[in-house]
């Protein structure tokens, strides 16, 4: 019986351990997302074939999805913020948006030669919907 209880306990503990990976609080700004987009930008400079372009755009899609979710969270906070806090948030957003803008420009340029390839164009189609999808 002891060994059975050990198995159950380790199952539950492993679950708690894995879920603990998520427990740190996420910051309510776009710093992490900007960092990710910058990394994707860096990768986009080494695109050698349509497969690389596809991978870059797939990861970009995922990042834009996180950005969308983070922005919606930020806006809930923005509505309840004081005037000073609002200005601070606007400033932070402007900075993040500018950096994302620059990275998107580079990514778009680097993936341009592959846009007519089927896989890549499908990813671009997905990007069309990404910011407003549920």
């Amino acid at each position: 019986m002891k060994s059975q209880i050990t198995i159950i306990a380790s199952l539950l503990l492993s679950l708690l351990f894995f879920s603990g990976c998520q427990s740190e609080t996420t910051p309510e700004d776009l710093r992490e997302e900007v960092k990710t987009i910058k990394e994707i930008e860096k990768r986009s400079q080494n695109i050698e074939n349509k497969g690389d372009a596809f991978d870059v755009l797939r990861d970009l899609n995922q990042s834009l999805k996180s950005i969308r979710d983070k922005i919606l969270q930020m806006e809930i906070k923005y509505r309840e913020a004081s005037e000073n806090e609002k200005k601070q948030m606007e400033k932070e957003f402007e900075t993040a948006n500018k950096e994302i803008d620059q990275s998107l420009q580079v990514i778009s340029k680097n993936t341009e030669p592959y846009k007519d390839k089927e896989e890549v164009s499908k990813m671009l189609d997905k990007l069309n919907e990404i910011l407003i999808s549920k």
Binding site: L72, N97, D101, L104
Partner: peptide
């Protein structure tokens, strides 16, 4: 709720990837 940040971000994406649909 007229999300100002989201509007702006969609605009940013639209400027680089044509065809992105605004809500």
């Amino acid at each position: 709720k007229a999300h100002p940040f989201l509007d702006q971000m969609i605009g940013t994406v639209q400027s680089h990837f044509s065809g992105t649909v605004h809500y």
